[in-house]
């Protein structure tokens, strides 16, 4: 049994490293992206082996549902921009006879020059071996697990990771939500989005699948959010699942949806940070310190924040996928 586990670990790690290597060495960007999707899948298995089902859940939702679609759509955007530049629009040079190669350039990266090989290799080797040495010499310790365990009864929830995220180290989570918001602001500052146009689905299969998947995804998201108070799950995972469902809708919707109006969309996107801030200020006023809760109020406050954070993360991920401010929004 334990020998099998060790073999499993070794095969898994070899696979992860090999996939990452082929991904980085790939000249074809599409192949690199598919390898990266596989990399995410194998990583989720590694997180399982490291007794981190919460992380595996987040990796599953983000790796399978968001990163892959994001990368594939980005490749397509790059390809269409390059194609348009070479189809003789004004302001661009006339089309080149060897035009098709322009398309290749968009999604191909030639192998790197030889002269950067040794410096890069030596640098990476030095950094890697320093890290390995430091890790092998690090003393064994249980970390903060006993401390967290000792304070679980005042945290308001039964799952240690949720307790850390939303009570003991709520500051981190607050700033993390702020960073996600800032990333979205950065993407919106680049201009309006170029949304994938709605098209009628070619056949009944895609709409049928959507009709099954979207409700199940919403139920699963709520279930994962609810499970977070006592088992692996929580706002991040639920937000990622709902965000992936939203991305699926954006990609596959058969007809144009009414555009999300500006103000409600913005309220939803900022809800997590805003509510967190309000609760933090309330704690400051009530004498518990910034982001401190009274013990009796911990559970309802955590649930409130988690619901808002789930909504914000899901909306922000969809908006980041669409990339750019909503069209027809002059606010």
């Amino acid at each position: 049994m334990s020998l099998l586990l060790v073999i499993f670990d070794l095969v898994l790690l070899a696979g992860i490293i090999g996939v990452a290597w082929r991904c980085l060495a790939s000249t074809d960007l599409f192949r690199a992206v598919v390898l990266f999707i596989t990399f995410g899948l194998l990583l989720a298995l590694a997180w399982v082996r490291l007794e981190a089902p919460d992380i595996a859940l987040a990796e599953a939702a983000i790796g399978a549902g968001i990163t892959g679609a994001l990368l594939l759509v980005t490749l397509e955007r790059l390809r269409s921009i390059m194609a348009e530049r070479h189809s003789g629009r004004p302001h661009t040079p006339p089309p080149d006879p060897s035009g098709p190669h322009a398309l290749l350039r968009a999604l191909h990266d030639p192998p790197p020059e030889r002269h950067s090989f040794f410096p890069a290799l030596i640098f990476a080797l030095v950094v890697g071996s320093l890290l390995v040495t430091a890790l092998w010499h690090q003393p064994q310790s249980t970390g903060l697990e006993p401390v967290v365990d000792a304070h679980m009864d005042v945290s308001g929830v039964d799952h240690p990771i949720t307790a850390v995220l939303l009570n003991f180290r709520a500051y981190d989570t607050f700033l993390e939500l702020a960073i996600v918001l800032i990333a979205l602001l950065g993407a919106w500052s680049l201009g309006r989005h170029d949304l994938i146009p709605a098209r009628p689905a070619p056949g009944p299969i895609l709409p049928g699948t959507l009709r099954l998947l979207v409700p199940v995804a919403i139920v699963t998201g709520v279930y994962v959010l609810w499970a977070g108070s006592h088992a692996p799950g929580g706002a991040f995972q639920a937000g990622a699942i709902l965000g992936a469902a939203g991305i699926l809708l954006v990609l596959a919707r058969p007809r144009q949806l009414p555009m999300a109006p500006g103000i409600p969309l913005r309220l939803g996107i900022t809800a997590g940070v805003a509510l967190f801030l309000l609760v933090g200020l309330y704690g400051l006023g009530a004498g518990h310190g910034f982001l401190g809760y009274a013990d009796a109020w911990a559970y309802p406050l955590i649930i409130l924040i988690e619901v808002a954070a789930t909504l914000s993360i899901a909306l922000t991920l969809v908006a980041l996928f669409v990339a750019g401010r909503p069209a027809g929004d002059d606010a």
């Binding site: 970390g143 240690p160 995220l165 991040f236």
Partner: peptide, 21 residues
């Protein structure tokens, strides 16, 4: 396992995907 490190990683993954986007 240490829940603090796991919570840190969880926030890290969400930040990483936003930064990637």
């Amino acid at each position: 396992p240490d829940p603090v490190a796991q919570a840190l990683t969880l926030t890290g993954i969400v930040v990483a995907v936003s930064a990637t986007a």
